[in-house]
C-alpha cells in the first residue's frame, strides 16, 4: 500500500473528553487503493479547513510503545510530479 489517501470527511473536535485537551481534527480518510475502505484517524499539520475534503493526504505513524497509530497529513501538491 502506498500510504496515500483522500479526505472524505472531517470534524474539529472541541469537546474536552479529556479535561484540558486542545481542539483536534478527526478525519475520515479513503485509502487510494480502495476508496470505499475508510480510516477514522487524525489529520495533522493541516493549515486550513478550506478544501480539506477531497484533498490528498499521506500516512504518518505516531509511535506509542509497540503501537503505531496511522495519522494523515496533507500532501504538498507542489512536490508531486503527477497526481
Amino acid at each position: 500500500m502506498s500510504g496515500r489517501g483522500r479526505v472524505h470527511a472531517y470534524t474539529v473536535n472541541h469537546q474536552q473528553w479529556i479535561p484540558g485537551s486542545e481542539p483536534y481534527v478527526i478525519g475520515l480518510v479513503e485509502i487510494v487503493e480502495q476508496p470505499d475502505v475508510r480510516l477514522t484517524t487524525n489529520l495533522v499539520d493541516c493549515e486550513s479547513e478550506d478544501g480539506l475534503i477531497g484533498s490528498d493526504v499521506e500516512v504518518t505513524f505516531e509511535q506509542h510503545d509497540e503501537v503505531f497509530l496511522p495519522l494523515f497529513r496533507s500532501v504538498d501538491s507542489s512536490k508531486e510530479s503527477n497526481s
Binding site: H8, A9, Y10, T11, N13, Q15, W17, S21, Y24, I26, L28, L39, T40, T41, N42, I53, G54, V67, L69, L71
Partner: peptide, 24 residues
C-alpha cells in the same frame, strides 16, 4: 478500537463527520 485512539470517542464525533460531509 478503530476510533478511540484518535479521539473519536463519541457519537457526536461520528455524526459530525456525516454533518461535515453534508456541508461539503
Amino acid at each position: 478500537q478503530w476510533t478511540l485512539p484518535f479521539g473519536a470517542v463519541s457519537a457526536a464525533n461520528w455524526i459530525a463527520l456525516v454533518g461535515q460531509r453534508r456541508v461539503h
